[in-house]
Design a protein around this nucleic acid. Structure first.
Lengths: 336, 336
DNA sequence: AAAAGTTTTGCAATCGATTGCGAAATATAA
DNA sequence: TTATATTTCGCAATCGATTGCAAAACTTTT
């Protein structure tokens, strides 16, 4: 069922049908009615790709993410997809995996589909391969990086102030009269390094010494939260052994915090009485466990919505800035 | 950068370039080399939509899901996307929400994008609006329903034997010498009704009376597991009040089971000593909580992979059957 | 060296839309 | 009624590819 079929039935030319479909002026009301009726009855739907060929607008945007199964990414994808769909765009979403070369492959697919814009979610898109792939395959379309930066003329960023957020978490622990704080650090992504920086700054300011000395590392690249939790348990052991005085632990993710919690509980260490615990992410896990977990809300929905809006603005050259900074919020629950 | 630009540079016609791109025979090796080199250097990528216009193959498939944020759906989307991408297809995924009319809208978008096949995930796609929308907009393309059925000539189904799985869960509880079983039922979706049926059958067979009499209902349509957990807590109260002898609870989802667990623990009822608890889903929550939750693994990854394969087979008219039935597996952990 | 057979290539149509521009139809003015 | 202005519509080109068929360019044979 094409525009020509409709044209034939209506006894007009394809141009006229096209004009009716797109509500263009210069069509007699009576013909418009007649064609529209045929359009409705026949169940015709335009082939958007064919249209895109001449209008040079695919109405596609690409979303690249390392692994859609990690729950905060899922939330982002959801929000972005809703917003873009609302504006007539269709999202093509790929889980790229960690390998930068693989990411480049997906970027090429996006070019083949002629996406009008791209949103990169996650902080692992800083690799050179990615930069080059974008420069090569998508030099013209706006690219929004959620929680990361890319030094390219067509790149935009939406960031959250992780450093300040972490400082706020330390402040919470201090308010609870904790003085022997430990920090549990995940993979050294740019975002996580910012958090670490925040921890160190806050420690310094409180006169509690060198933050790095109070930091335990539990790096690992896992998509499965269970693995993170296991890392958290191991790290907790290390903390207890190296810093037996610890009365407050700040973890760079909720999953790690859950791991700590499990380890502490298995040793009959009371949370928060003996050790207060604070995570980062505001994930569901923090509500499922007992005691419920104090955490840092990174405003995922807001950040994602902002990225979608930023991209839409960029389409119309209306973007106010290439960089958007949003703030986090501490959520105080039972574990602190 | 189009095929014509390349042709001009190479001093050949567009047809020749096209033949090189698609590895068609009948091109002199020397010209092929020359054109290929230009192709590589120029960073040309074919416009897949333009190609699709003449080949009548969009290489798109659509995935419809109520809400991508619910974690088992995410897993499905991930698996399907990987498999389809591997075969050269690009997935367009939509979170449709619960409203059937909204679903019909998305089905129309899929038609506009000329998808070659569709996968419907979740048991909520049985509504008449959906059926009609498919009949109207996608009467020709194969549609695979994951965990559901649709009476249409182009529909395929991948199902899991929930009934039998639930029976196996009851068997587990019986092995643990539990005799006063309660069943906690979620929304009456087709899938959940099958589970209930399984519970009743197993109870009957064990001579433990009428399953329905031992069932408590906690219906609710929430995307957020926290809400499910809250429902679980409430339902647990009801169970304890109505059936104080209960020594084993089977829940139709893990989230409900977590809710039960929380409620039981807050009342100092020991799990599994006083009451054994079994969930269904094999979700992460079951590993995060303590004691870890016995559950029914519904083989999500396998089911999803099978649906993708089934769709691919359907493309080539190689589908062995319109209906595929897979089996579940009981995972015994600490809570039972 | 010409004829016949093969291998390479290009022309032009096609897919399903949109759109500038001119022509036809209608409305308005003289 | 004719001239002019204004609507309304259709022709044909275009977007970026693919492909059947015929023409051109080579090989091989005689």
């Amino acid at each position: 069922m094409t525009i020509y079929d409709i044209a034939k039935k209506a006894g007009v030319s394809a141009s006229t049908v096209s004009r009716v479909i797109n509500n263009k002026p210069g069509i007699r009301e009576s013909t418009r009615k007649r064609v529209q009726k045929l359009l409705d009855e026949s169940g015709y739907t335009p082939d958007i790709s064919a249209r895109g060929l001449v209008t040079q607008a695919s109405r596609f945007i690409g979303i690249l993410i390392e692994d859609i199964r990690v729950s905060h990414h899922t939330e982002s994808v959801y929000v972005i997809e809703q917003e873009m769909t609302r504006h007539g765009y269709t999202c093509i979403t790929f889980s790229t995996g960690a390998d930068p070369c693989q990411k480049a492959k997906y970027i090429e697919i996006l070019e083949q589909r002629r996406v009008e814009g791209v949103i990169l979610i996650g902080s692992m898109f800083g690799a050179d391969e990615v930069r080059n792939a974008i420069r090569r395959h998508l030099p013209e379309v706006p690219v929004v990086i959620v929680n990361g930066m890319l030094d390219l003329p067509n790149a935009y960023s939406v960031l959250i102030d992780e450093e300040r957020g972490t400082e706020d978490c330390v402040a919470l622990l201090l308010r609870k009269n904790r003085r022997y704080l430990a920090y549990l650090m995940d993979v050294p992504t740019p975002a996580n390094l910012h958090k670490l920086q925040g921890f160190c700054t806050a420690m310094q300011r409180a006169g509690l010494g060198d933050g790095k000395a109070h930091t335990v590392y539990a790096p690992g690249m896992d998509t499965n939260p269970i693995a993170s939790i296991a890392r958290g348990r191991e790290a907790a052991k290390e903390i207890l052994q190296k810093m037996p005085d610890t009365d407050g632990i700040l973890c760079s993710t909720d999953a790690l915090a859950i791991g700590c919690l499990q380890e502490l509980q298995s040793r009959k260490i009371r949370v928060p009485e003996d050790i207060a615990l604070v995570g980062v992410d505001n994930s569901v896990y923090g509500l499922v466990c007992s005691p419920t977990l104090s955490t840092l809300d990174n405003k995922l929905a807001e950040v994602s919505l902002s990225s979608a809006r930023l991209l839409l603005d960029a389409f119309e050259q209306k973007a106010l800035s290439r960089k958007l900074m949003l703030f986090t919020e501490v959520i105080e629950r039972e574990s602190s």
